[in-house]
Simulated scan of single mutants.
Amino acid sequence: MHRTVFADANSDYKDARYVICGVPFDRTSCFRRGSRFAPQEIRNNSYNFETYNHLFYIDLKDVDIHDAGDLEVAQGIDDTLKMLSVHADKYVRDGKIPVMLGGEHSLTLPFIRACKTKYPDIACVVLDAHLDMREEYEGERNSHACVSRHIIQDVTGKYVSIGIRSGAREEYEYIKENKIRMFSAEDVLSTGIESVISELRGYINGPVYLSIDMDAIDPAYAPAIGTPEPYGLTPRDVRSVIACLAPHIVGFDLVEIAPAYDSGNTALLGAKLVRDFIAANAKATL
């Protein structure tokens, strides 16, 4: 069934604490396109779940959530990012926590920039299989393959990536030269997500923007992805990071699901992670 709003997003904009928006854009995707269809599929699958979250003792029917629908996009990425900035700036200025459903990963940039205006000391945590540290890709500076580099250079040096297992040699050299904090999927496997979280707590204790590229998760759990990489994180790893950071999160996105490549399970998992974020953040800020 086609659902026009995310489940339990029953608040009007004025009263909402969380504003969900979809961004149906995937023009710079380079392997599998189709993430433009993800916002609606995530909404459709969000109706599978009970309103009560037993892990965080929160009933989402008691949380003020508004779904602003899908935002308008342009033909190209540069114009799209400018258009998104208008909405992202308004959400943050109005005291909302933006929850963006992509679309491709390049779309994170205007949302974290908006949060930066209100929280100058903001940190960014990205869960991703890929480094995304290219300066440009296939002639496009704002490609999804460049988003993390632009976050670091243009928004905040307080940056951590988790789940990495792919990148060009130059990208690995860049993170080494610039001492960028990165936990590979192998790090998580060998030391455990609890160890990674312990390190996170050591140097992130202020406002955080959390971006979840669904390819951080192993394709055994999330196969419908734009650029899948084997040997990834588990959904529980991701949920643990969400729970750890929840008290500090001021902006959130979930991107890069390409729904055509499975029977709905990846969008279902994405919807659950969004609901877990809202529940965990709501619990932490009561």
Rank of each mutant, 00 (worst) to 15 (best):
G232R: 01
A224E: 06
G226M: 12
A258D: 09
S195N: 13
T227G: 05
Y203C: 10
P230W: 10
L233H: 09
A246Q: 10
N265D: 01
S240H: 12
V238M: 04
N265H: 12
V208E: 02
L210C: 04
F277Y: 15
G206K: 15
A224D: 00
D253M: 09
N265W: 11
G232S: 04
I225Y: 00
S211Q: 06
E194D: 10
S195I: 10
I278E: 12
I278R: 02
V238F: 11
G270E: 04
G251H: 07
E229Y: 04
Y209F: 11
S195T: 14
V255H: 00
P223H: 07
P228M: 09
N265M: 15
L245S: 11
T191W: 12
A271E: 01
D213G: 04
V255F: 00
E194T: 01
M214N: 05
D276S: 10
I212N: 02
E256C: 07
S211A: 06
S211N: 01
L200V: 14
I197S: 12
D213W: 04
D218E: 04
A220S: 15
R275W: 09
G202Y: 07
P228R: 11
V274M: 03
A246V: 08
L273A: 03
A246L: 08
I257K: 06
A220Q: 09
Y209D: 07
T266P: 02
G202Q: 11
A271Y: 00
N265Q: 15
A224R: 03
A260M: 12
